[in-house]
Simulated scan of single mutants.
Amino acid sequence: MINDPRSLCLCFLLGTVPPAMAQDLVGGGIAVAPWYPGADSYRIVPRPLVNFQRGPFFISTGQGLPGVGLKMNVAPDVAVGVRIGLGLGRDEKRSERLEGLGDIDSHAEYGVFAEWKPGRWSASIAYSQAAKSGYGGTLSLRGSYAIWQQGRHNVQVGAGLEWGNSDHMQTWFGVTPEQSARSGAGLATYRPSSGLRSGVAFASWTYRLTERWHVTSVLGAQTLVGDAADSPIVERKTAAYGGVGLSYSF
């Protein structure tokens, strides 16, 4: 499942299992991404890669961070499910632009999703709600296609859109009057509305080293749009991201 409401969950980013590797596996790697949505600076972080399912129960990093849930097939190539996991926060010390705005805490998330995987295609829709009051929720649409499947190689390309409700947009892109008064950068008050917040495009390449070992690399870009792009906290509207990881299937 592909869903990305937070700064490091930019679609793949090594947290997502490519359709060609939709089997039990463990692994990890490193990823490069902005410190937060709209940041001008980047960070390198370790990323886990986990996919395990027994019956309807699964453990997966399909949303970028480890989570658990239940899913079931409701039609050929179609599955629906529920999921709980973790959401990243934001530290005001990571940028002078954020000084005085306060931190966004890491928090639990829960949501529902549906997947459609016919052949080389893969598509998903998911809603994720922060368990912390006032943090809001997001709706994500994702799709990918395997443009090359031959021998040891599997190359995927994909794109997605993300919508945020009013609480989510205010938490991540808004500036309250109190925050404006404390702002070290002198940011003006800003209240974004609910709406489309970002679009993403990516490509991934999975190379099979052996029957069980795989290397996956990812490269993509995310663009903030609408009220999110117009936020005074945003230093860069479009940012690249990427990563590489090694996994073992069993």
Results as ranks from 00 to 15, higher is better:
1 M>N: 09
3 N>R: 14
4 D>R: 11
7 S>A: 14
9 C>P: 14
10 L>W: 04
12 F>L: 15
15 G>I: 00
18 P>V: 09
19 P>Q: 06
19 P>D: 12
22 A>I: 13
23 Q>W: 14
28 G>S: 08
28 G>K: 03
28 G>V: 06
31 A>R: 04
34 P>G: 07
35 W>T: 15
38 G>W: 01
39 A>W: 08
39 A>L: 15
40 D>F: 10
42 Y>P: 00
44 I>R: 06
45 V>Y: 11
48 P>K: 06
50 V>P: 00
55 G>Q: 06
56 P>Q: 09
58 F>W: 02
58 F>V: 03
59 I>D: 04
59 I>V: 08
63 Q>F: 14
64 G>T: 05
67 G>E: 00
69 G>V: 04
72 M>H: 14
73 N>P: 10
74 V>H: 02
74 V>D: 03
77 D>F: 13
77 D>A: 11
77 D>H: 09
80 V>E: 02
81 G>I: 00
81 G>R: 02
83 R>W: 11
85 G>C: 07
87 G>P: 05
87 G>Y: 03
88 L>M: 14
88 L>A: 14
91 D>F: 04
93 K>E: 14
95 S>H: 04
97 R>Y: 05
98 L>M: 07
101 L>P: 03
102 G>T: 01
106 S>L: 11
108 A>I: 05
109 E>K: 09
110 Y>W: 09
114 A>C: 05
115 E>I: 01
116 W>I: 00
121 W>C: 14
122 S>L: 09
123 A>V: 12
123 A>C: 11
124 S>C: 05
125 I>H: 13
126 A>T: 10
128 S>F: 10
128 S>K: 07
134 G>P: 04
136 G>M: 01
140 S>L: 06
142 R>S: 11
145 Y>E: 04
145 Y>Q: 04
146 A>R: 12
150 Q>T: 13
150 Q>C: 12
151 G>R: 09
151 G>P: 03
152 R>D: 15
155 V>R: 09
157 V>P: 05
159 A>Q: 01
160 G>F: 08
161 L>A: 07
162 E>A: 11
164 G>V: 01
165 N>G: 12
170 Q>A: 13
171 T>S: 07
173 F>C: 02
173 F>I: 00
173 F>G: 01
174 G>Q: 00
174 G>T: 01
174 G>N: 01
177 P>D: 10
178 E>I: 13
180 S>N: 00
180 S>G: 05
180 S>Q: 01
185 A>G: 04
187 L>C: 07
188 A>D: 07
188 A>V: 09
190 Y>K: 01
191 R>F: 15
193 S>G: 11
194 S>Q: 10
195 G>E: 08
196 L>N: 02
197 R>A: 13
198 S>M: 11
199 G>W: 15
200 V>W: 09
205 W>D: 02
206 T>W: 11
209 L>I: 06
214 H>S: 13
215 V>E: 06
216 T>K: 07
217 S>W: 04
218 V>P: 08
221 A>P: 03
223 T>W: 10
223 T>L: 10
225 V>A: 08
226 G>N: 00
230 D>Y: 12
230 D>L: 13
230 D>F: 05
231 S>N: 05
231 S>D: 05
232 P>N: 02
233 I>F: 01
234 V>F: 07
236 R>S: 15
236 R>F: 05
238 T>Y: 11
238 T>A: 11
240 A>H: 05
240 A>Y: 03
243 G>R: 06
244 V>Q: 08
246 L>N: 07
247 S>F: 07
